[in-house]
Design a protein around this nucleic acid. Structure first.
Length: 313
DNA sequence: TTGTGTTTAAGGCTTA
DNA sequence: TAAGCCTTAAACACAA
């Protein structure tokens, strides 16, 4: 793994792949979906390296979005004018990264050929679900007269201040890994008490996928409003410490970190997943995450229950 | 015109 | 060593 010799990524290429960077951007957004331009912004804000040669890496990034099944395209609604679609993570890609670390992908995520016949409905289902999530949030926020909070979904339902920076937030990771090159990154991460692997992140976006130990296309999805918090988040998924901790889809190669219950946390969870708009760079301005475009859906409740996937190796 | 999205190809690197 | 992953480049189509 490259070890930048400077304090920041300012002149070093981050050790993350484009897939990881894209996943970071998407996960950093409360809606768990971003338009391409916002993904660009997220990356450029946090990694000054990518403020140059934009054509090159942006082309690569677009290639990855199209090529990899772990990304799903969500069309804009008519009331969401703008170029391009929204991009989200496929709900089944939670185990894609080794030990939950975005530094390395465990295996390539690929949609099962056997269920490819469902492909036409995949994106619309995903769109329905994500937009429904946004709708629920917006409804709740409208009722309380507040704005969409720029706070991590982790903070919802738990006693953390709005300024809380998750220990695995990308800011912290980078600060630890690169402010002191070759130093305490690993051990520091190990000492962190409360990790939030990608699975937990996905739980917020795809609760039905992570509240069952297996992907069950037949299982009806309860979307009763009582199951949701004020932000449209499934209450169960917010209770990290409870019994309702989401189970993880069985990986091809099970690892301790992917076992239900998270008895063992990854030693270097990436998790970039803070929604904090703070830049990782000493020079970067406001980040894109605070400007993400929430959907304003109006569809009826729909769950992407037909989504099936498998990580292959 | 520009941004977005798709596809193909090639080469380097890592892993099994 | 083969396979897979990642990056980069390029061409093309489409839409705002």
């Amino acid at each position: 793994m490259p070890r930048p010799g400077r304090n920041t990524y300012s002149d070093q290429k981050p050790p993350y792949s484009y897939i990881s960077l894209t996943a970071m951007a998407i996960q950093s957004c409360p809606e768990k979906m971003l338009p391409l331009s916002e993904i660009y912004k997220f990356i450029m804000d946090r990694f000054p390296y990518y403020r140059e040669n934009t054509q090159r890496w942006q082309n690569s990034l677009r290639h990855n979005l199209s090529f990899n099944d772990c990304f799903i395209k969500i069309p804009r609604r008519p009331d969401q004018p703008g170029k391009g679609s929204f991009w989200a993570l496929h709900p089944g890609c939670g185990d894609m990264f080794e030990n939950g670390s975005f530094l390395r992908r465990r295996k390539r995520f690929k949609v099962l050929g056997a269920v490819d016949h469902l492909a036409p409905s995949k994106q619309s289902d995903a769109a329905h679900y994500l937009q429904q999530q946004a709708k629920l949030r917006l409804s709740a926020l409208a009722a309380t007269g507040t704005h969409l909070p720029q706070m991590s979904t982790y903070n919802l339902g738990v006693t953390q201040s709005s300024t809380f920076k998750h220990p695995f937030a990308i800011e912290n990771i980078i600060a630890r890994e690169y402010k002191v090159p070759g130093s305490l990154a690993f051990s520091t991460m190990q000492t962190m008490s409360a990790g939030y692997p990608l699975h937990n992140q996905l739980t917020t976006a795809w609760p039905h996928m992570y509240n069952t130990s297996v992907i069950d296309t037949a299982a009806p999805i309860s979307m009763a409003s009582s199951d949701y918090s004020a932000y449209g988040m499934p209450i169960k998924s917010l209770c990290h410490g409870g019994q309702s901790l989401p189970a993880i889809p069985v990986p091809i190669k099970p690892t301790p970190t992917s076992m239900p219950g998270f008895s063992a946390l990854p030693p270097h969870i990436p998790a970039f997943l803070s929604n904090s708009p703070q830049s990782l760079s000493p020079t970067s301005p406001q980040t894109a995450t605070s400007q993400s475009s929430p959907a304003t859906p109006s569809e009826t409740l729909t769950s992407p229950s037909t989504l099936q996937s498998v990580a292959v190796h």
